[in-house]
Computed example of a mutant assay.
Amino acid sequence: MKFSLIICTYMRPTALLNLLKTVAIQSLYPDEILIIDGSTNDLTKEILELNKFQNLTYFKVSDKERGLTKQRNFGIERVSETMDIVCFLDDDTILDIDYFKNLKNVFNSDNDITGVGGIATNENNWKKNTTDYYHPKKYICIDGFHVKLGQRHVLRNYLRLGSDQLPGIMPEFSNGISCGYPLTGKNYQVDLLIGMSMSFRKKVVNTINFSTYFEGYGLYEDADFSLRALKFGKNVLATTVLLEHHHDSAGRPNKFKYGKMVTRNGWYVWRVKYLNPTFKARFKWNTIAIVLMMLRFVNVITTHKKKEAFTEAIGRFVGLLSLIFNKPTIKQ
């Protein structure tokens, strides 16, 4: 089983180098590493010239090829024909030493598994149960572990807008639970994989591309791709495929654009799985969108980052309003 690793990067030379240093010490080294650089300067190229890595090929894309989805498709087109698995990693991640070894074991465990996502240990808040009861509106319990839900999920539960599905499964009104799974060593079947760490059998990427709808930063492009990948087999979150995700602010959009994308792109991926949702599901999706927008307006008072909260809230409002007059066209 041969692995091709695609890392799309933009203006993050130091973060990328930190990631590659953890790739270099893997117990199972990837057979191919493709760096797809959309930076507007040459700092990434220069840092890779000073630090050599085995099996690595560097590509600098043009202006028209820049953007996460375009860069990922650019990388897919250049994967060697002999590869079996195509892996995607965010450039601000750090790998556990057995990342690729354990990833191989997951794919070998079940031929029906065609997509695998990893777990960010520094963002995993699951704890072993110490009691028999955890409030169902405030906690989720799985396999002897529990995790405390964020305030938004708790509020939605009390408003009867919460999901009754397991984490990573998209309910008919789209807004599911994204807290991952406890580190039990198991594989958990899901709908949605996260772009920071996702891998697919080559037959998947040979057939479908990342949607060009998700321009630039590409928020939720991973959700869109993993939903469309389900027609090839199962997606699983593998709790043995471990890494750390250190969110690098470089290259991220401003909060107004982010807020607008959250709403419009969120609507898009919802309709990828549920092209014609029921009236009840539509009502719940729109109600949740309004509640989350109002929470960001409230954050103007309750947080120190008042400008960010306000501009994101305005972005969410504009995004929601735009859906009345200009809905995206869904690509199946």
Score class of each variant (00 low, 15 high):
residue 21 K to G: 08
residue 50 L to W: 00
residue 24 A to R: 15
residue 24 A to P: 08
residue 41 N to Y: 03
residue 27 S to A: 14
residue 53 F to A: 13
residue 52 K to L: 10
residue 35 I to E: 08
residue 55 N to R: 10
residue 29 Y to S: 02
residue 40 T to C: 07
residue 57 T to I: 08
residue 30 P to H: 05
residue 57 T to P: 00
residue 41 N to K: 14
residue 38 G to P: 07
residue 35 I to P: 14
residue 56 L to Q: 07
residue 30 P to F: 01
residue 19 L to R: 13
residue 26 Q to W: 00
residue 50 L to N: 09
residue 50 L to S: 09
residue 40 T to P: 02
residue 53 F to I: 06
residue 19 L to W: 07
residue 55 N to V: 04
residue 19 L to C: 04
residue 50 L to I: 09
residue 20 L to D: 13
residue 37 D to V: 11
residue 43 L to E: 15
residue 30 P to K: 10
residue 21 K to T: 13
residue 56 L to M: 12
residue 33 I to L: 00
residue 24 A to T: 12
residue 21 K to S: 07
residue 28 L to S: 15
residue 25 I to F: 01
residue 35 I to Q: 06
residue 21 K to C: 02
residue 34 L to I: 08
residue 21 K to D: 10
residue 49 E to N: 15
residue 48 L to T: 00
residue 39 S to G: 11
residue 37 D to Q: 03
residue 39 S to F: 04
residue 45 K to P: 01
residue 45 K to I: 05
residue 43 L to M: 13
residue 41 N to V: 04
residue 38 G to I: 08
residue 32 E to D: 09
residue 32 E to V: 01
residue 33 I to P: 04
residue 47 I to N: 11
residue 44 T to I: 15
residue 47 I to P: 10
residue 22 T to D: 04
residue 19 L to M: 14
residue 37 D to F: 03
residue 56 L to P: 00
residue 23 V to R: 03
residue 54 Q to K: 15
residue 56 L to W: 11
residue 42 D to L: 04
residue 34 L to A: 06
residue 24 A to K: 15
residue 37 D to L: 02
residue 44 T to F: 09
residue 23 V to W: 03
residue 28 L to F: 07
residue 51 N to C: 03
residue 52 K to I: 01
residue 32 E to A: 01
residue 23 V to C: 07
residue 42 D to G: 06
residue 43 L to P: 03
residue 40 T to W: 13
residue 20 L to H: 10
residue 45 K to W: 07
residue 53 F to R: 10
residue 50 L to V: 13
residue 48 L to D: 10
residue 33 I to R: 01
residue 40 T to R: 12
residue 57 T to D: 14
residue 33 I to S: 09
residue 30 P to I: 02
residue 33 I to W: 05
residue 30 P to G: 03
residue 35 I to N: 06
residue 22 T to I: 02
